[in-house]
Structure formats: C-alpha cells, structure tokens
Simulated scan of single mutants.
Amino acid sequence: MAVPDHRVLVPVDVLGGESVPRTVIDVLASVPVVLLGYRELPEQTGTDQARDRYGSRVRAELDELHAVFEDAGCLDVSSRSVFTHDRLKTFERVAVETDCDAILLVNPAPVLERVLVAVRGDVNLEYIARFLGAVLANTDLEVTFLHVADEDERTRRTELLEAAVDELVATGVARERIDTSLVVDGSPTRAILEAAADHDLLVVGESRPSVRRYVFKDRAKRLARETVDPVLVIRGEYLEGTEGAGDEDTAGDESASTDDVEGSDESP
C-alpha cells in the first residue's frame, strides 16, 4: 500500500504527563506521523543537563506512545525527542526538517465526531483540502468549513466556502458529510473559539508565508490554550529553510520506522 504524501507532527510533553487521545490516534492512522517527545525548560536549565538526567525516561515514554500508534494501524510512525527553551520554535523547526504538513497541538478529545475547519482565504485552499481528504479517508467524521468575514464580504466569502467544499469533495469525501458556516464578526479568533465549542477537533490553516509565524505563534497558540479541542495547524505549502540552522541536534540510530533524535533547540 502506498503511503500518502502527507505527514503530521505530534509534539507530546511526555514528562509532563501529556498523552495523545486514542480518538485522535485513530483519525491519524491513515497518514504518516512524526512523534516529538519534548520538554520545555526554564532558561536557567541547560539542555545538555536535562538530556543527561531525563533523556532515557523521555525515550522510554516515547517508545510506549510509538507502540500505541503502531497498534492503531498507523501506516508510518517515526519519533524524535528534544529538550528546548522555546517549544513553538522547536515545533516549527522540526516540522520543516521532517517535511510535516501539519502540527497537532494536543488537547483532550474523549469523543471525536465533528471537525471544524477555519478557512482564512482561498490561498492554499486546494492544499488544505488534499490534506484533510487524506486524514478523513477512513473515518466517518463530519466537517464544517468556517469563515469569519466582514459584512461587505458576505457574498464573496460564501463563494469561498463553496469552493472549499468542492475541493474536499474532489478528494473523495462525501458531500453530505460537509457543512459550511459564515460568521460576520470583527474578531476571527473569538468567532472560531465559539464555533469550536460545538466541535471535537479544530483545524486551522495558514494562508501565505508572510503571516505563517504570526498565525502559528499567536492565533494558534491562543486557540490551543482557550479551546478544549485538539488543534491541527496545517502549514502553508512553503517549506522554507529553518531559522534554527545553528541549533544543536544529536542524531541517533535511524531506520524506516524510527528516527531517534535527542538534542536541544537553543533560543536566541
């Protein structure tokens, strides 16, 4: 069976007791996954010191989670571990290095039946739809495309939502599983959070590279903090080089199924 050309980064604070809900694991079974076991450290704590003290424990916890994903039938699971002073910077760097199309920000998900997809604009819409189509391929999840617009944009944005539906249907997702919602609100983040209350997984996409870091570090961070849902951030189709070229990484053994890396991501 061919492995889909999509990949999801799943960062997990294993030392902090964080885990990935089994409902989410089942949904991700149709796409390759990169597990990132991480621990965010206080500025005064050195990454080498933390790795020496906790590295084996992180590796053991990550191996257990790796096995859970494999038992769920995931097509391809790889893993890395890292100690960092800036977790979001690390997520972004590793996503680029491993060619991940999306980053999952973990929250509890006891039930996963309805997915809310916040659409920012028509840029990258086909890319987002292709990714969603791969994730939803073996599920019965219902999807709602949400767009937050100004009053004078209502007609044009209705057409945007219709285009999003068409793109997702083209990937093989049945049209009856897809709904749309157009909200007129001056605060997109607030509107997304209110809509997310009636859904189980929130998907947000980046629209263009010039705003990619702004969206990820600010809006997605707030959404993950203030919603009870897991948040899946679909990256733009712009895998530019990472800013952290000088970060220290120590590679371990590599194989087709596991890429064991214990390293550090030093904040500037």
Rank of each mutant, 00 (worst) to 15 (best):
K221W: 10
A60T: 07
Y238Q: 08
T98M: 15
L223T: 04
R93E: 08
E248G: 03
D247H: 11
D179R: 15
V34W: 04
S81P: 00
R208T: 14
R175E: 15
R22W: 03
P108G: 12
A109S: 13
I103D: 02
A174E: 14
L15A: 03
P230L: 10
V148Q: 13
K217R: 15
L9F: 10
L88F: 13
Y214V: 12
T180A: 01
V148N: 12
D13E: 04
R120I: 02
S187M: 03
P110D: 12
A2L: 08
D48F: 07
D63W: 00
E40A: 03
S78P: 00
I234G: 00
R22A: 09
E151M: 10
A191S: 15
R114Q: 14
R212K: 09
V211Q: 10
V20W: 04
E248F: 05
E40M: 02
S79M: 10
D247Y: 06
I178Q: 09
R93Y: 04
D86L: 01
A170K: 12
D218H: 12
A191L: 14
R208K: 11
T84E: 01
L182N: 07
A134H: 06
T189P: 03
R80T: 06
G37H: 10
D249K: 09
R114T: 10
C74V: 11
E162F: 06
L36R: 11
D260V: 12
A164G: 03
I234K: 04
A72Q: 13
P32S: 02
R190D: 13
S81M: 13
V82F: 07
L223M: 08
T98S: 15
R22F: 05
V106M: 04
R177Y: 03
P42E: 01
L112K: 04
D152I: 12
C100R: 05
D200P: 07
A95I: 01
L202M: 09
P268M: 00
D166G: 06
G172N: 10
T90C: 15
D185H: 15
T158F: 00
L239K: 08
Q49S: 05
P110T: 05
G263L: 07
D200E: 11
F145C: 02
L136A: 14
D5T: 12
S210D: 07
Q49K: 01
V173A: 06
R39V: 03
V8T: 14
T47S: 02
R7G: 05
V77A: 08
S207W: 06
A95W: 01
T139S: 15
A60I: 00
